[in-house]
């Protein structure tokens, strides 16, 4: 399928879904129109609300807050994950000792931490950054740990035969291997940074996209909730495409899908 046809198909799916939504909420198919609109709003109203949010400029402040939280959570989480993943992969004993604690911490549902973080770090952005950190850290940590341990033994033996010392091995072999694995989880970890930010805002804050949605929900403003979700979805798509651009620039050396790799 050509790029253009693919784009048409993607837009087509969206239009069909919107049309269904419009039909169900504007014609008395399932119960009365009023009831349907109370529960599901209408695509027209939601779009109107989105436009109004941007027109009034109100939404930019919230987007900016959420973006800040996402970026900070990602930077700290990825940084910590890389550092610890490296350390544990190179120090077997440390990994063995901490293994049960790491597993326990990772299995904990992060949502239960949100009130604690709010208590510790206040209702500002830092409690959200902390929540995002706990999500991003483990993904990056496990990937880097795996990546460093699974460096090809031949590549490693070759580098050692070339006379590389520990520092040079770290720089030329372990580090790039770890980065590869980190980037392979980049989409997931950036997504989780955003989830942490939004959930944190949702559970207690005075700004951000999560706050906007929570605020609308508290007064049964379904249109507001959907408008918030639409803005969130677009925000996610924009961030994800930025990540893709970064990924493609940094991983030029990797074979493309299907093994064909002409760049």
């Amino acid at each position: 399928m050509t790029r253009f046809k693919l784009l048409l198909a993607q837009i087509g799916v969206g239009l069909v879904l919107l049309a269904l939504w419009h039909l169900v909420t504007n014609y008395p198919i399932f119960g009365t129109v009023k009831n349907a609109q109370f529960f599901f709003s209408t695509p027209g109203d939601v779009m109107l609300r989105v436009v109004r949010e941007f027109a009034s400029g109100e939404i930019w402040r919230h987007l900016w807050i959420t973006l800040q939280e996402t970026v900070l959570a990602f930077v700290f989480g990825a940084g910590g994950g890389i550092l610890m993943g490296f350390l544990f992969a190179r120090r077997e004993l440390l990994a063995a000792v901490f293994d049960p604690y790491i597993k326990a911490a990772n299995a904990l549902p992060r949502v239960v931490l949100a009130p604690i973080f709010a208590l510790w770090f206040g209702l500002g952005i830092w409690s959200k950054v902390a929540l995002g950190f706990t999500l991003v850290f483990f993904i990056v940590f496990f990937n880097v740990y795996q990546g460093v341990r699974e460096v090809s033994p031949t590549v490693l033996a070759n580098a050692r035969m070339l006379g590389m010392n520990e520092r040079q091995l770290l720089r030329h072999v372990y580090w790039p291997a770890a980065l590869t694995w980190m980037f392979s989880s980049l989409h997931t970890s950036v997504g989780f940074a955003l989830v942490g930010a939004v959930v944190g805002e949702y559970l207690g804050s005075s700004a951000g996209l999560g706050y906007k949605i929570q605020e609308a929900e508290s007064v049964f403003d379904v249109t507001g909730v959907f408008a918030g979700m639409v803005i969130l979805a677009v925000f996610v798509l924009v961030i994800d495409s930025i990540v893709t651009v970064i990924e493609n620039r940094l991983l030029v050396w990797r074979p493309g899908p299907g093994g064909v790799g002409k760049s």
Partner: peptide, 22 residues
Amino acid sequence: FQADALMPWKTALDNVAVALEP
């Protein structure tokens, strides 16, 4: 080596040049 031993994240030039770093 028999198996591929080049660093896949380095270009041909960098793979060869890095051998002189030690």
